[in-house]
Design a protein around this nucleic acid. Sequence first.
DNA 1: CTGTTAGCGCTTTCAG
DNA 2: CTGAAAGCGCTAACAG
Lengths: 343, 343
Amino acid sequence: MNSHGGAPSRGKPATLRQVAELAGVSTATASKALNGRQQVSATTRQRVLDAADRLSFTPNSLAQAMLHGSSGTVGLLTHDLEGRFSIPILMGAEDAFGAGQTSVFLCDSREDAIRERHHIRALLGRRVDGLIVVGSQTNPRRSLGHDLPVPVVYVYAPSSDERDTSVIADNVAAGRLAVQHLVGIGRRRIAHIAGDPTYAAARDREAGIGAALADAGLTQVGPSRSGSWSEAWGRTGAHAVLEAGEPVDAIVCDSDQIARGALDLLRDRGVRVPGDIAVISFDNWGPFATGSRPQLTSIDFNFQQMGRRAAELIFAALAGEPAAGTQAIAPRLVIRGSTTVGA
Amino acid sequence: MNSHGGAPSRGKPATLRQVAELAGVSTATASKALNGRQQVSATTRQRVLDAADRLSFTPNSLAQAMLHGSSGTVGLLTHDLEGRFSIPILMGAEDAFGAGQTSVFLCDSREDAIRERHHIRALLGRRVDGLIVVGSQTNPRRSLGHDLPVPVVYVYAPSSDERDTSVIADNVAAGRLAVQHLVGIGRRRIAHIAGDPTYAAARDREAGIGAALADAGLTQVGPSRSGSWSEAWGRTGAHAVLEAGEPVDAIVCDSDQIARGALDLLRDRGVRVPGDIAVISFDNWGPFATGSRPQLTSIDFNFQQMGRRAAELIFAALAGEPAAGTQAIAPRLVIRGSTTVGA
DNA sequence: CTGTTAGCGCTTTCAG
DNA sequence: CTGAAAGCGCTAACAG
C-alpha cells in the first residue's frame, strides 16, 4: 500500500540470507558478525551490519528457538483480568521477564476448564518455557498435574497439590500487621468486619487478627462479622458494630471496599474517623483507598512482587533448581488518614 | 524430577518423527494423519493417533509457523495495565483472537519510548502477525510509522497520523447520550463537572453535552467546571455547583470517580439523589458505579467491543483489506439509581 | 495410500 | 578469517 525507500512496508521481512548476499558473504559469516562472534574481521562485520540495517533485518526468533530448543516465551494463564489482583501480578511478571529476552503470552480462561485446556495446549504448542497460573481467589485450585513438559508456578491461588510451586499473599501476616498498627497508635477496642467467609483470605486474616490481639493481651470487640466483599456489606457491618452497643475505637475491614462502606455509614452517624474510630483495611486498591475522606490506611499485598517472584521461580526451575511448596509474600502497611491525623 | 509412565515430565517434548517411528510410518504420513488429510487409510490414521497420544505429542507451532510463514501471534502493546481502560480492551482482543488460533503477546511499555522500541523489536522478531497499541488517554499518540512489516491498530488513544488505523471511544456521542437521558427523565437544569481539560475525552464530552442541550433547546447551568479525574475534585466541583446558587436538577460528571465525590458532598448537604438532583457519569467502572448509594447511572464505552474491533481490523488487514482512519465505538447507557427511583 | 525429497531461517561444527 | 553442510520440526509437492 505504502511502499517506499529501502525498508519494506509489507511483504516478508528480510532474511539472513538476503543480508549475507547484500554484504557479499555467506550466511554463516553474517550470522557470526551479527551475533558478535570474534571470528570475523572488523571490515566484514561492518559491511554485514550495514546491510542488516539497510534491510531493517530482524532475526527470526522462531528459527532461533527451533535450534536453541527454547522459545524465550512464557505463558500467563489468568482467570479474571477484571480482577485487581491479576493485573499487578501480571505486571510484576512481565517486568521480571521483560528485562531479559522473555516475552509473555497472555491467556484468560474465564474460569472455564475447557478453555483452560485449550489455552494450555496452544501454549505448549508454542513451546513456552514455563507457565504462570494466576487465580482470582486465595482458595487453592486444582493442580494442572505433573506431566507438563515445563515448569508451572501458581500465583495468588495456590495449587492444592503440595508438590507444585505456589506464591501466595500472606493473609495471616496481613491480619497481624493491621492489628499491630492499631495497637501501636493506642487503640484497644478493636472490631472486625470480615469478607466472604468461604474465602481462605477471610479466614486467614481473621486468624492473624486473633493472634495479634492475643499477643497484645486484648480481646476482639464482638465477633468477626462475615458478609461479602462489597461496600454495601461495609455499611451493614458497621451498622451492626455500632448497634451492638459495645464501645469501639477501631475497625478492621477485610477490603478497601468494605472500608469505604463502613466510612460512609460512620459519617452518616456522626462518628469521626479516626478521632472516634480508626479504620484500616486490606488490598490498598489505589482509587478506592485514596478517594475516600479520610483516605484509607491499608495493607498492601505486594502483588507486583508476587508476580516477580513467580518469574524468578520459573527461571530457577529452568536452571534446574525447582522449589516445590508454597511461598508467602510479606504484606506492607500503607498509612493514611483513616488511622492517623498527621498522615 | 518426577518422571513416570509414558508421558515425559520434562525433557524435550515428542517430535513428529518419534510419533511416526512408534507408529511405523513416515513423518509425511504421520503429518497427514494428524492433520486430517484424506489420503490416509483409517487403520494407519488410528495407529498414528494412538502413537501421538501415547507420547502426548503436541505439534511444534514454531516449526509450523516457519513453513506457513505466519506465526498465529499478535502483539498487544499497552501503556498502563493499571488502567481500567486497557484491561477490558485487552480482554476483548484476547477474546476475538482466542476463539481462533491466535495467541497474544502482552507488553507494557510504561509510557517509555525506549521500552516501547525494545518491545516492538522483540515482537517483530517473534514474527507477530499484527500489533495492537492500547493507550491510556484519549489524546492522540505518535504513530509507530508506516515502515512496520505488519498491520498496526491503535486503540483508545488514536494515532495522530490519519493514515493509521484507530479505534476510539465516541466521547461526543457519550456526552449527548448523558444529556438525552437526563432530558428524557424530565430534567431541565443541567450542570457539568468536567475532568482534566487537557484530555481530549473531557473536551469531546463537553461538546456532546453542549450539542444535546442545544438540541433540546436548553442552556447549561453554569460553566463546565474543569478539574481532575478524582473523587476529591468531584466534591469540590459539586460544592461549586451548589454555591453558585442557580437551581440545578441534574449534574453530569466526567467520570464515575468524580460522581462518587459529588454524591458524597450532596449527601453531606442533605441534597437527595435523584430526588433533588440526578447524577450521571461516564466509564461505568463496576465497583465504583455499583458501590455507591444510590448506584450510578453511567455511560459505558464498550471497551471490550473496542478490543474485539481492533482484532477484527487486524484480521481484515491481514486478509488484504486495510481500513485506514479512525473508527468510533458507540457508547451505551446503563441506568441505575442515581437518575431513576425505579431502577 | 505411502514414502522420499526439499526447504522454511537460522546457528554451528568443521574444513578450507 | 570465511564458507559449505547439516539439521532443528514440520509440511507440501511429487513419486512410487
